[in-house]
Amino acid sequence: MAEGPEEDDSLAPLAYTPASDSLSAIQPAEPSFPPTDSSEVDTAAADRSAVDSSAADSSAADSSGVEICPWTRIAVEINGSIYGSLAGLTVEPDILGAHVVRCMCWDLDPWRGVSAGDSLYLLVGETGRENRVVALRYVPVPGSPNHPFSVYSFRMTGDNFPSHYYSDGTEVMKLLSTMPVSTFEEMTGPYGEPRGDHTHSGVDFKAPLGTTVRTCRGGTVTRLNWNPEYNGNCVEIDIGAGYREIFLHLESVDGGITVGSVLARGDRVGTVGSTGVTSTAPHIHYQINDERGNPIDPYLFFGSRRRNLPQGDMAVFTAFRESCDCWLSPGTAAGAR
């Protein structure tokens, strides 16, 4: 992966007046996670912040005393796809575009729901995970049904990895009401994401190699390791009423699991891997099929919840958010540092 977007001094900041985020505070119940194995905890990740929240305070100043932004700043007007609009601003626009889409897909359809003239303002740099979006502000063109929003990368106390949060500390990503993994870096493949001549039939959670994978519902194992060239090691479970729970790209399937095995909710299925030619990094592809064998959105099947940053994190998060907002403001969010 490239170190970051190339600077484009010719990109002028877009003229806009950002509207305040009209996000109501959400106080959901905590989602159900399977128990965490001690071997799964990434202690190195747990000891580091998502983004050094003091970066803006410790950033260098130039000879005139003006503070230098510690991240790459990009302002772009969308014309066509998000990926195409980023071309020329980074060595690998497809990669940065994917990172941007992951920040936006919870609020709108980033493939078909953006309009020509919508604006994106980005801070890009090291975040402690693959996604390099430190902060993002989306401003729709006047008359659009979409609403403006901003998101910021931050690691909640106790989490192994950072996530993105709205201005009020509500997590951008939704968690399934019951999760197949207890720790993961990011949801890297939403259900329905366009992929060439098809759409993604499940949800991808990027997690460390060897992370325990558990059944969210329990049931009878109906298939193991079918079409392994593409699916890798995989398990299908009949969870009742004709619905099937599917796990692809496993590093391994737990010993003793055979066709006909009956698993209870929360039982181990295997471990996160990157098996099969369609996998490019360790993750679990999690899928639900209906009684006709058609994939359906796991978020609709199980329901979902969002978390809020605890009160103890809010002071640090607010200071970090305010620093990001300064660099995302008109006149600073150009393509230069």
Rank of each mutant, 00 (worst) to 15 (best):
M1T: 12
M1H: 10
G4Q: 04
D8W: 10
L11Y: 14
A12R: 15
P13R: 07
L14A: 15
A15Y: 13
S22C: 06
A25M: 15
A25L: 11
A29L: 13
P31A: 10
P31I: 03
S32F: 14
P35N: 11
D37I: 00
V41F: 10
D42E: 12
A50K: 05
D52G: 06
S54T: 14
D57W: 10
A60M: 10
A61I: 12
S63R: 15
S64V: 06
R73P: 07
I74N: 03
I74V: 15
E77W: 05
I78P: 08
N79P: 00
N79K: 15
I82R: 00
I82N: 01
I82L: 04
Y83E: 04
L86K: 13
A87W: 09
G88A: 09
G88L: 11
I95G: 00
G97Q: 12
G97R: 02
V101F: 10
R102T: 11
M104E: 02
W106L: 11
D109I: 02
P110F: 00
W111T: 00
R112M: 00
A116Q: 15
D118E: 14
Y121Q: 06
L123K: 02
G128Q: 06
N131W: 00
R132F: 00
A135M: 12
V141D: 01
P148M: 07
P148C: 12
P148L: 01
F149P: 02
V151I: 01
Y152C: 06
Y152H: 15
H164A: 08
H164T: 10
E171M: 14
L175Q: 10
T183I: 13
E185I: 04
M187W: 13
G192P: 02
D197E: 11
T199L: 05
H200V: 05
S201G: 07
L209V: 06
T212R: 10
G219D: 06
G219M: 13
L224D: 03
N225D: 14
W226I: 13
W226N: 07
N227E: 14
N231M: 04
G232Q: 04
N233G: 05
N233R: 13
N233V: 02
I237M: 14
I239F: 07
G240M: 01
G240F: 04
G242F: 02
R244M: 04
R244H: 11
E245F: 10
D254F: 01
I257V: 15
G260H: 06
S261V: 03
R265T: 15
G266C: 13
G273K: 03
S274R: 09
G276W: 07
P282E: 08
P282A: 15
Y286T: 03
N289S: 02
N289I: 04
G293M: 07
N294A: 02
F301C: 00
F302H: 14
F302V: 06
S304I: 01
R305K: 07
R306L: 01
R307C: 10
D313K: 12
M314T: 11
F320M: 08
S323M: 09
D325N: 14
S329H: 14
P330M: 03
A333T: 08
A334C: 12
R337T: 07
